[in-house]
């Protein structure tokens, strides 16, 4: 298949004391696609996300990111400032708890504008206009632009985090359970939003979720993790409709259907 990967991990291993979090994991993400990483709690999926994003260093293995100039970077060999710049420009990170990403003492508009300013934008009018545009895209009313995030509901906070993350048009977004802990109706709205924004902006994403229905709706490809290993990977519908590994079969058969 043509095209080169945007980010690749090879032979990633990591132990926390006697606990193996990752065992020889290989993973690839191509531009514009969403890869879901599923598995139960403790399977290593969030650890893998953090290792790919350069937030946690592996004991062994390498993560390579291809920048827009087609240069490969070893994510864990990068100087810290370079990695920070990457996180502010090319990359985005959506946490399950939006409070980890948002600045709660700064207005909603300020939270969105801050990412632009960190990238060098200085014109106040432009920044505010873009913040307004992004609030609209994530369906937050313009009248709330000067309100503090603490006055927002859980679903609104999550949408604000997404606006803050996507305002710089990242090429790659890491998402850790972005719909976790939300009401089902709020979750549906957020799924719809993530799906349409990711498609329209041609963003690649790595999505960690324990909810395989979310993976099915959002991701083209899926990797199933168990005890720090990827036990099965492939097209999302293929893996979920025709699971081969015993653990994937267990995972799929455990889902409640309505």
């Amino acid at each position: 298949m043509s095209g080169q990967t945007l980010i690749s991990g090879r032979g990633l291993s990591l132990s926390f004391g006697r606990v193996t979090a990752l065992r020889n994991v290989d993973v690839d993400v191509w531009p514009g696609e969403m890869l879901a990483i599923v598995g139960e709690s403790g399977s290593g999926k969030t650890t893998l996300l953090n290792v790919l994003a350069g937030r946690v260093s592996p004991d062994r293995g390498i993560v390579q990111y291809r920048d827009p100039e087609d240069t490969l970077h070893d994510v864990h060999a990068m100087p810290a400032p370079t990695l920070r710049t990457l996180h502010r420009s090319d990359w985005g990170f959506v946490h399950q708890d939006p409070r980890q990403n948002l600045r709660m003492a700064v207005s909603a508009g300020g939270n969105v504008g801050e990412r632009l300013m960190a990238r060098g934008a200085r014109h106040y009018g432009n920044i505010r206009a873009q913040a307004l545009d992004w609030l609209a895209q994530v369906e937050i009313d313009a009248s709330r632009i000067d309100d503090l995030p603490r006055t927002f509901s859980g679903g609104m906070l999550q949408r604000l985090q997404i606006a803050r993350t996507l305002v710089t048009h990242p090429r790659l977004v890491f998402m850790d359970e972005p719909t976790g802990g939300l009401d089902v109706s709020v979750q549906a709205r957020l799924l719809d939003l993530i799906r349409s924004l990711v498609a329209r902006l041609n963003i690649a994403a790595v999505l960690v979720t324990h909810d395989i229905a979310v993976a099915r709706l959002l991701a083209q490809r899926i990797a199933v993790m168990q005890r720090g290993e990827i036990v099965e990977t492939g097209l999302t519908d293929q893996v979920l409709d025709d699971p081969r590994h015993p653990y994937t079969q267990l995972l799929v058969s455990s889902v409640l259907t309505t």
Partner: peptide
């Protein structure tokens, strides 16, 4: 695209 592709062995992105 004027060629035959084997779905049984094609990689996920080719199938898509």
């Amino acid at each position: 695209r004027h060629a035959e592709i084997d779905i049984a062995t094609a990689d996920p992105r080719a199938i898509l």
